[in-house]
Design a protein around this nucleic acid. Structure first.
Lengths: 191, 191
DNA sequence: TACGATATGGGGGGTCCCTCCGTTTTGTCC
DNA sequence: GGACAAAACGGAGGGACCCCCCATATCGTA
């Protein structure tokens, strides 16, 4: 059916891969709301086949971005092991932001939640969250955070910035630096 | 045609208002991608009439949100006149963020640019930008900003936060406070 | 009241998402 | 090397959407 496992029939695995390749191209051009029918057409399969392999748009997006997201999470572990907690977190957030900014549709995907029938532990959502949690925990222990910050808040912030900069990584880096360093010189007023 | 002016025929003005009322309801429920056909149905007019009054989705959204955005901009002037520059900016950004967070579809609208045939000076985009510019200029003169910040960057950040918090104003306030105060205790590392 | 300008709305074309179901392909067992 | 059941496929169709054309109805005015 829709699993990637080796127990599937050969044509099923082949079609799944074709769909992923086609999806990558179309999403690269049109973002997260790319036409599913066009993806199926480009892959040379019927639209029913696409829906059988990926029961929802979210499932397809998740599969398309899975590899890149895993790479990003390995990178988080490298940074956590190699740098001071504050730098590890700052560098990773910048890499995350740059990646989501330059990968069309990814920020949208990460913002939309894990989605229906996808196991949290291998959704892009879940992977990113776990990677961030490690870095945030380390930073908290080292007391380099200004306040208690939940990992999902930082991810939301990074995603938000990616969305707001609409594909311009320079703008994204700048906004992230602002947010990390603080826009104002003293804390914001209570209203 | 699509202008609101008094030179239009009475039925035209009436239909325009009905469309705006219907749009407000449907957008409140479905956000910025609400069905235009449903809006026309609910207003009791044909879909062609909707398209004649509002040639693009963006034009309709712009008209729907215009009043609220103007109120927000008046508020910016009040704050600029009544508070210290830093507080005026901080308070207004929070009000902006709260408003865009609780008004479904507004953040999306503001992020999508002024859009085709809409005059910049009375697009929601333009109005907000001008309001922010005044506050930012004052804050810069008072040297309470951590770095040179363009108004559109702050607006992008606020919009991004609204989008990221998906309708939860508490979360939005928290993220904004984080961004304004800074997440890290010392400036982020150079990579 | 009659008339021209203005505005309307039904309907059609194109696209999209998703599902049903008859047909084809695959893997396996004899 | 068949035969057979399970698995996978894809065309077609329903429902929804956006947008435009143009025959018709409505409004403001002379």
């Amino acid at each position: 059916m829709n699993a990637a496992g080796p127990g599937r029939r050969a044509d099923s695995r082949r079609n799944r891969q074709r769909l992923l390749d086609a999806a990558e191209e179309v999403i690269e051009r049109d973002g997260a709301q790319a036409s599913l029918e066009e993806i199926a057409r480009r892959a040379g399969v019927g639209s029913a086949t696409l829906h059988r392999h990926f029961p929802s748009r979210q499932a397809l997006l998740n599969a398309v971005f899975h590899e890149g997201v895993e790479r990003l999470c390995r990178r988080a572990r490298e940074l956590a092991d190699g740098l001071a907690p504050r730098d590890a977190l700052a560098v990773w957030l910048e890499e995350l932001t740059t990646y989501t900014t330059t990968t069309r549709g990814l920020a949208m995907t990460l913002m939309s939640g894990p989605g229906g029938a996808i196991a949290v532990e291998d959704s892009c959502h879940g992977l990113i969250h776990d990677a961030a949690a490690r870095l945030v925990t380390d930073a908290e222990k080292a007391e380099v955070l200004r306040a208690e910050v939940a990992p999902h808040e930082l991810i939301a912030l990074a995603n938000a910035i990616s969305l707001a900069s609409e594909g311009d990584p320079g703008s994204a880096r700048r906004l992230l630096a602002l947010a990390l360093g603080g826009v104002l010189k003293s804390p914001p007023a209570k209203v």
